[in-house]
Structure formats: structure tokens, C-alpha cells
Amino acid sequence: KEMRNAYWEIALLPNLNNQQKRAFIRSLYDDPSQSANLLAEAKKLNDAQA
């Protein structure tokens, strides 16, 4: 469930391009235990690109 939530949050971040989203989501599938960390990194990048 945590992975699914992280997937959708990443997919809906407005300032990431599709390539960036795909990279984060690929990492999510590679290591679901890192969901919270990956989401935090994606949000950080999203904010930096705002």
C-alpha cells in the first residue's frame, strides 16, 4: 500500500518531467522498501524545479 501511494504521489508531481517520474517509479519497483525515501527525494526535486 505504501508503494502504491508513493507511486501516485510521484506520478502526480507537477514539476517533474516524464523521464524523471519514470526513473523514480522504476526505483520504487526495484526496492519497494525505499518508498518513503524515494517519495521524499521526488518531492525535493519537484520543489527545486518549481
Rank of each mutant, 00 (worst) to 15 (best):
N5P: 05
N15R: 05
D30F: 13
L38Q: 03
E41R: 15
Y7E: 15
W8T: 08
N17H: 08
L13F: 05
L12V: 07
L13E: 00
P14C: 06
S33Y: 06
E41A: 14
L12I: 08
Q49I: 10
S27Y: 08
P32Y: 07
K43H: 12
D31A: 09
P14N: 06
A36F: 13
Y7R: 14
E2C: 13
N18W: 15
M3C: 09
S27W: 14
A11K: 15
E41C: 10
M3P: 06
L39G: 02
I10T: 01
N46R: 01
S35Q: 09
E9R: 15
Y7V: 07
Q34E: 06
N5Y: 14
R4W: 13
K44S: 10
L38S: 03
A40G: 06
L13H: 04
Q19P: 06
N18H: 13
E9S: 14
E41V: 11
P14L: 07
R22L: 15
A11W: 15
R26S: 06
W8R: 14
E9F: 15
R4T: 12
N15C: 04
D30P: 02
N5T: 14
P14V: 06
K43C: 03
E9M: 15
Q34R: 10
I25D: 01
A50D: 09
Y29N: 10
I25T: 03
Q49G: 05
S35V: 09
L39P: 01
D31T: 11
S35M: 09
N17L: 06
F24W: 02
K44T: 07
S35F: 12
I10S: 00
I10R: 00
S27G: 07
K44C: 05
P32Q: 03
A50F: 10
K44P: 00
Q34M: 12
W8P: 01
A42I: 02
E2L: 07
R4P: 09
N46G: 02
A6I: 09
Q19H: 11
D31F: 15
N37W: 15
N46P: 01
A50N: 10
L38M: 05
P14S: 08
L45M: 08
Y29I: 10
A42T: 01
K44H: 07
A50C: 06
A42L: 02
A40L: 10
E41L: 13
A48I: 13
A6P: 05
R22A: 08
A36G: 08
N5H: 14
Y29Q: 11
N15W: 14
P14H: 06
L28T: 02
R22M: 14
N18M: 08
F24D: 00
A6F: 14
K43A: 04
Q49H: 05
L38A: 03
K44L: 06
P14E: 07
E41P: 00
A36C: 07
R26P: 00
Y7I: 14
P32R: 04
D47P: 01
L16H: 00
N5W: 15
A11Q: 14
Y7K: 10
W8S: 07
Q34P: 01
Y29R: 11
L13S: 04
M3H: 10
S33W: 05
E9Q: 15
L12C: 10
K43M: 08
Q34W: 04
I25R: 03
M3F: 12
D47Q: 12
A23H: 10
A48K: 11
I10Y: 01
D31P: 01
A42H: 00
R26W: 14
K21D: 00
N37Y: 15
A36M: 08
S33T: 08
F24T: 01
L28P: 00
P14F: 04
N46M: 01
A42Y: 02
R26C: 07
A40W: 12
I25Y: 15
A36T: 08
A6S: 06
P32M: 06
N17F: 06
A36W: 14
N37K: 13
M3I: 13
I25C: 05
N17S: 12
A23Y: 15
D31L: 08
S35I: 12
D47E: 11
L16R: 00
W8M: 13
N17V: 03
P14W: 04
L12F: 11
N18E: 11
N5S: 15
A50M: 11
I25E: 02
K1L: 12
N17W: 04
P32K: 04
N15T: 03
Q49K: 05
N18R: 09
I25V: 05
L38I: 13
L13G: 00
K21I: 05
W8C: 10
S27E: 06
K43R: 12
F24R: 01
P32S: 04
Q34S: 06
N46Q: 02
E41Q: 14
A50H: 10
A50Y: 11
R4I: 13
Q49L: 10
S33N: 07
Y29M: 13
L28Y: 03
A36N: 06
F24P: 00
Q49T: 06
Q20N: 02
P32D: 03
W8H: 11
A42M: 01
R26N: 05
Q34K: 09
N17P: 02
L13R: 01
K1I: 11
K44Y: 07
F24K: 01
L12Y: 11
A48L: 12
A11C: 09
A6D: 03
L45I: 09
D47R: 13
K43I: 07
Q19G: 08
S27Q: 09
N17G: 06
N17Y: 07
A36E: 07
L38W: 08
I10N: 00
L16D: 00
Q19N: 11
P32H: 04
A48Y: 11
D30G: 10
R26A: 06
N17C: 05
L38H: 03
A23I: 13
E9P: 02
A50G: 13
R26T: 04
R4L: 14
S33R: 08
L28V: 06
L12N: 15
E9A: 15
L16N: 00
L16V: 02
Y29H: 07
A23V: 06
N18V: 10
L38K: 04
D47T: 09
K21W: 02
F24S: 01
L39A: 06
S33K: 11
S33D: 06
A48F: 13
E2I: 11
K44R: 11
P32T: 03
I10F: 03
N5F: 14
N5G: 12
A6N: 05
L12K: 15
A50S: 11
E2F: 03
S33H: 07
W8K: 15
L45A: 05
L45T: 05
N15D: 04
R4C: 13
Q19K: 10
K21N: 00
L45D: 02
L39Y: 04
L13K: 02
A40N: 09
L12H: 15
N18L: 13
N18S: 14
R26V: 05
L16Y: 00
A48Q: 11
Q19A: 12
D30A: 15
E9D: 04
L38N: 02
Q34G: 05
D47M: 11
L39T: 04
Q19T: 10
L39Q: 03
R4Y: 15
A6Q: 05
N46K: 01
P32A: 04
L12M: 09
A48M: 11
A42F: 02
Y7N: 02
L45N: 02
D30K: 11
A11N: 15
N18G: 10
